[in-house]
Design a protein around this nucleic acid. Structure first.
Length: 401
DNA sequence: CGTCCACGTCTAC
DNA sequence: TAGACCTGGACGG
């Protein structure tokens, strides 16, 4: 469940399901979990949740009781405790009866009811984590959904940070500035503005204002106050807004869908799937970025696109063939290394093998096969939410200059 | 059966 | 800039 919208929906879920519910006893952890214990025990407490970017905070609040005088009753909590969660790739909350505990329920809060129910932090892959007496992770920036103004300011005032030397698609995953953006959101956001993913981030962001011009003035035309040359640059997209604004509005679209956002196993995933315009959509292109994450996009990849094709696929293939070298016609054959300036074919054939191939071919959507049930092509949408070709060329958001 | 892929961090060479 | 950390679903043979 894990980008900003899913984390927030998770906090809404907890608040809804646990409203009025009294919890009791210790917080229990699964045997297999390596995350820290949550040393909280209380006769009667409540649970509320809030979210910030890609974190959720649960607040455990002891209830007042008559015998609060004997509060020191053997380690019973009398102070509230915050537990801060990160969801990794597969975390979510579920509130169930005790005998319906989900598989991979790794942290559990038990209700004080005749038929006990349990709030579980479920996390199949266990990449998620929690921290008792936790605080928002200090290195993460403001929430781009619910601290929009400070989010903007944080980006705009730090553009000299070397972090912005990277391609925009990679910077969008930097939680120090984009707390809440994940792999599907970066694809959707860049797609909507037609920004090539591998364009230098600073060139896309410089010139943007700390304040959102879109929000204050609808007419927006009243920006006459400052027409010094850079007119062109600051022409905000009337309809959509600039990149930073979309980092705010696009995640909110997912939140406003209700449901649970990205969760292929759920039935109501179809609505989310239909919402996606780019990520994993048939006909879109994809490339591994410099961190090995798949970037989905349409059109031009941009100047900083990885040249070297060091995909995991290539590695595996290398292993397999590393003994029978001459069988390696593989697929590199087609590319035709026309202008390879360096004939120096390094030993690591895997990495250099196809450094100069035509961009176009290797990056067309990799899997032609059927996709996982949950990810099928856009089903019966009469209007496939703006086809690729439909947009290409238009709205050319000249990134840099 | 095996390989590849997945919504994200982390820390170690 | 690799890997490590994990489980499980979809495919391919």
């Amino acid at each position: 469940m894990p980008e900003g919208p899913e984390l927030h929906l998770g906090s809404l879920y907890v608040n809804k399901m646990c409203a009025g519910v009294v919890f009791t006893g210790p917080v229990r952890k699964s045997e297999v979990s390596k995350s820290p214990d949550v040393p909280f025990t209380c006769e009667a407490y409540r649970i509320t949740a809030s979210s910030r970017g890609k974190e959720v905070k649960l607040t455990l609040t002891p209830m007042k009781s008559d015998d609060s005088k004997q509060r020191s009753k053997a380690g019973q909590a009398d102070q509230a405790m915050d537990v801060v969660f990160r969801f990794g790739m597969s975390g979510y909350f579920r509130f169930t009866s005790e005998d319906e505990l989900p598989k991979h329920s790794h942290l559990r809060f038990y209700s004080k009811e005749t038929t006990c129910r349990v709030l579980s932090f479920v996390d199949t892959r266990r990449f998620g984590s929690w921290q008792a007496n936790g605080t928002w992770q200090p290195d993460r920036g403001p929430c781009l959904m619910f601290e929009y103004e400070s989010f903007r300011k944080n980006v705009v005032t730090h553009l000299s940070d070397r972090a912005f030397d990277r391609p925009i698609c990679e910077v969008l995953l930097n939680q120090k500035y984009f707390n809440g953006i994940g792999n599907y959101l970066r694809a959707e956001i860049l797609f909507r503005l037609n920004i090539p993913p591998f364009v230098p981030a600073r060139s896309v962001l410089e010139g943007l204002e700390s304040e959102d011009l879109c929000e204050n003035e609808k007419p927006l035309k009243t920006e006459i106050k400052d027409e010094k040359a850079s007119d062109r640059v600051k022409t905000v997209k009337e309809e959509t807004g600039d990149l930073l604004r979309l980092c705010h509005t696009v995640p909110l679209e997912v939140v406003n869908q209700g449901g649970k956002g990205y969760d292929p196993k759920k039935e109501d995933y179809s609505e989310f799937k239909a919402w996606l315009q780019c990520y994993y959509v048939d006909g879109m292109k994809s490339l591994r970025d410099h961190n090995g994450r798949t970037m989905w996009f349409n059109g031009d990849p941009g100047p900083m696109a990885p040249k070297d094709l060091k995909s995991p696929k290539a590695k595996k293939r290398a292993k397999k063939t590393e003994d029978h070298d001459y069988t390696d016609k593989k697929k590199g054959a087609k590319g035709g290394s026309k202008s390879t300036p360096k004939k120096k074919v390094v030993k690591q054939e895997t990495k250099t093998a196809k450094k100069e191939i035509e961009k176009s071919e290797e990056m067309v959507s990799p899997q032609k096969k059927k996709r996982p049930a949950a990810r099928g092509r856009k089903t019966s949408s009469a209007e496939p939410a703006a086809g690729p070709e439909k947009r290409s060329g238009r709205v050319t958001r000249q990134s840099s200059k």
